[in-house]
């Protein structure tokens, strides 16, 4: 008989739902702007600009919820990692995904309420949430108010450089999303993690 753990408190689930929807909207509209074309488009350009702007602003506010939530609740502990031995732990986790997982071994870092992320999750969540997302917000807001961007930097249009940084980060989030979704199917069952992020509860092995 499996026992259940409460891993995702209400606020993280609300945050995550908004986060997921807004990120998807931003990715779709972002790509339709970057690769805009008069003949074929997913979202037409001016709607894409409008949606992207609104979704970007909302996502920033949503991010504050995450940021503040992780400061004032115990959820923040999952985002603090010890650097010592990190490489070793990452290696263990990778080896598990590549081999151990198929052999039916136990996960080297089983999910507990004390540690709900394995090292790979931890590193990528921290990287995305405190690195990439952060840069996206700064560059995104700058593009919303281009008059504050340096006209020229190192001989290039400041808007151009800002936009390039924004686009690179967008691509990284896009790639992250695939990995994130796939790894989420590797829970107790293929769908159990998705149930957890909706209802908060996770089955114990």
């Amino acid at each position: 008989m499996s026992e259940k753990m409460y891993l995702y408190p209400v606020w993280t689930r609300i945050w995550h739902a908004f986060n997921a929807v807004l990120c998807l909207a931003l990715i779709v509209t972002g790509f339709s702007m970057l690769y805009s074309n008069p003949d074929r488009f997913v979202v037409n350009f001016s709607s894409a600009v409008a949606i992207h702007n609104v979704a970007g602003v909302l996502l920033t506010f949503n991010y504050f919820l995450f940021f503040v939530g992780n400061i004032f609740t115990t959820n923040g502990k999952h985002y603090r990692m010890k650097l010592k031995g990190l490489g070793q732990r990452l290696f263990l986790q990778m080896r598990y995904y590549a081999f151990g997982y198929f052999k039916g071994e136990e996960s080297p870092f089983p999910v507990t309420t004390e540690q709900k992320f394995n090292p790979l999750q931890q590193v990528s969540y921290v990287g995305v949430m405190y690195g990439i997302m952060f840069v996206l917000f700064i560059t995104g807001w700058a593009l919303l108010f281009p008059e504050f961007i340096l006209k020229k930097l190192l001989g290039f249009s400041g808007i151009f450089l800002t936009a390039q940084l924004h686009v690179i980060m967008g691509f990284l989030v896009f790639v992250f999303l695939f990995i994130h979704l796939y790894v989420s199917t590797m829970g107790v069952t293929a769908t159990s993690n998705f149930k957890s992020i909706v209802n908060g509860w996770q089955e114990k092995h």
Binding site: M33, L34, Y35, S36, N37, F45, K151, K152, F156, S157, I159, F160, A163, Q164, V167, I168, F171
Partner: peptide, 17 residues
């Protein structure tokens, strides 16, 4: 367009990126 200090979304795409 870039050599004129502008960046036009959709028209300027970095091939590398």
């Amino acid at each position: 367009i870039l050599s004129n200090d502008s960046y036009v979304i959709g028209a300027n795409r970095s091939l590398f990126i």
